[in-house]
Design a protein around this nucleic acid. Structure first.
Lengths: 342, 342
DNA sequence: ATCTATTTTGAATACGTATTCAAAATAGAT
DNA sequence: ATCTATTTTGAATACGTATTCAAAATAGAT
């Protein structure tokens, strides 16, 4: 049992009832002024607004949501907030949702697949939707959300038959275009230092990349899965390059991985791009930094967030809308880590 | 007016009333089971839990908070989420607050001083507390929060007479120790590339740093304020070093600034640490990366968050507790960007 | 001034829970 | 078996709002 604390006689916040009394109207009319929409005579409206200002009245969001069945809250579950790509994602989501009156409940998870227990609290708080970045929802979690009438959207992932909307960058197409570019620049011996092996992200990119190599009859592709971190990229590249000096070019699963790869390569003695080409993915802001002029694939971050929010709102409005999976294009950003081989 | 959407007959979530009916008890008893604390006979408790499981019942947080006057929500306002130091801060706050049942409402702000309008929504949502990182609250905002019974705590800032608790790293002490170390390493000509000029962070550090220089009768200190970004550090250093080749050592307001400084210095032709020493502040994870073996001041991040949360809980429990300002020590982390001058 | 159509208003109610208070049930002692 | 002390229970209520429904007020036409 919790102590109630030594708080004051608890001066409570003003309620619509208090405002009504001071303004000499009914609570219903006060509510009409603040809920908007309904007609209130100018005279009373002014009285009410004055009274509200004097009492510093603000509507109580919990009481309101009990009636309207709209909590105006959205949960966001992030797995990789330390990656600057995802810091940016969070910031943009806030920028988009805040003007719409939605509050963003932040959640962290270490898990590749979000299970039911991780969303239990969000369910109790009746968020209207959940955005999951860089992770999947378990089948159980998806079902539970569906039954509870809570919209869920995967950001930067997608999953077959999960009955859940998703917005992601078309990794298959991106990898194809990257591979084509690299082959045209004369490279023949590749490595793909990727994120976790079985995620859609990795699978799609590998598929696109391999397809191009196959068409051109290029056999040399070493695949090294890992995590989306500098350290993982560093370690993978270090091992790879001390073992196999013949690699022409490394395609990285993310920019952060690529930074680790570049540092490891230089340490082992490779010059970039003279001895080794490196390509990243995401186009994080750090690529403007001197040591890392990385050629990369830009994800259309702003547009991806915009689409996600649109989808979210639409499904909140119509819970029976069929899930949609939106693949967005990106573009190759050429900097200075891919050389042209003669 | 919003369309209600084409939603289903809206299958509503189960309520305690539904559970009570199925279990053959009163709503009050169901509530007792889920609110905890009160006595309920084992027989009924089991019946209720079974019924709840069958109906997938979960308490409604909004309805609950209306009664208990506890929303179990905390707002966090961040100004610099792109800085990896603050990404880490956010992650740790979530890690600490989540097990306590608190939800974290994320807010972004560009502003150095948070005004009333920026916290208005958090007030409507009746968060129990607000954590402000890397920014201040305006006097108006502070007063308003106080009157509304909402706890506020500054993280990594403090302000005289703002009547608001704060947890920060003792920047004065840190700067003194850094300065002492640098002087002992033989440096005599300094620059301080800082964050915004009038923040407590900058003021305290400058004071500590200058004090040591004065004691040793060292006059050369160029002060260049800016923002806590790579770009700001880069630009400041570039201008400084092309103009003034005699600088021995640059003390930076944050690691991110230091990274920009190092890259700019190298571009201008300085070797680090042979020609120029650089010291950072924060000890972000990136300093493990090859190009940036930065000597820096480590902020006791985990402990700072822990203290902030403790303070938060205590003040939530006792709204009349006097604000406390907690300064925490850190430690010098010596890597490889400060040379010993003969 | 009178009548009708329209707008504005307030009383009553519901949202889903926790808690109070008194009654009922149970446990424990003899 | 009876009586008392303790535990368990349910009915009633309150939290603060939005909305419904019917009544009151107003606007507009003649």
């Amino acid at each position: 049992m919790k102590s109630a604390g030594k708080s004051n006689p608890e001066k409570r916040n003003a309620t619509s009832e208090d405002v009504a009394q001071l303004a000499g109207v009914s609570q219903a009319t006060v509510s009409r002024v603040f809920a908007g929409g309904a007609n209130v005579s100018e005279k009373k409206r002014k009285k009410i607004l004055d009274a509200a200002a004097e009492l510093e009245y603000k509507p109580n969001a919990q009481a309101r949501s009990l009636i309207t069945r709209k909590t105006m809250m959205v949960g966001i579950i992030m797995r990789n907030i330390k990656d600057p790509f995802y810091s940016a994602v969070l910031e943009i989501f806030h920028t988009r949702l805040s003007p719409l009156g939605y509050q963003l409940i932040f959640n962290n998870s270490e898990n590749e697949i979000i299970e039911e227990w991780e969303i239990a609290k969000l369910l109790e708080f009746n968020v209207e939707g959940i955005i999951v970045t860089d992770a999947l929802l378990s089948e159980g979690a998806t079902r539970k959300l569906k039954r509870s009438g809570i919209v869920s959207i995967l950001f930067n992932r997608h999953a077959e038959g999960l009955n859940c909307s998703a917005v992601y960058c078309d990794n298959y197409l991106a990898a194809q275009q990257i591979a084509t570019y690299l082959v045209e620049m004369g490279h023949r011996s590749f490595a793909f230092i990727s994120g976790p092996r079985n995620t859609s992200t990795t699978v799609d990119r590998l598929k696109g990349f391999q397809e191009v190599l196959r068409e051109r009859n290029i056999k040399e592709l070493t695949i090294i899965p890992g995590t989306y971190t500098y350290e993982s990229g560093f370690k993978s590249a270090q091992e790879l390059l001390t073992r196999n000096k013949k690699i022409d070019c490394i395609f990285c699963g993310s920019d952060i991985i690529a930074l680790g790869v570049m540092d490891a390569a230089r340490l082992v003695g490779f010059r970039i791009p003279e001895d080794l080409s490196v390509v990243g993915f995401d186009n994080i802001r750090m690529l403007g930094w001197t040591p890392y002029p990385l050629t990369t694939w830009e994800q259309p971050l702003e547009d991806m967030v915009t689409s996600t929010v649109e989808l979210l709102l639409k499904e909140i409005d119509d819970k029976n809308a069929a899930p949609r999976i939106i693949a967005m294009k990106g573009r190759l950003v050429i900097r200075n880590t891919v050389r042209k081989k003669k």
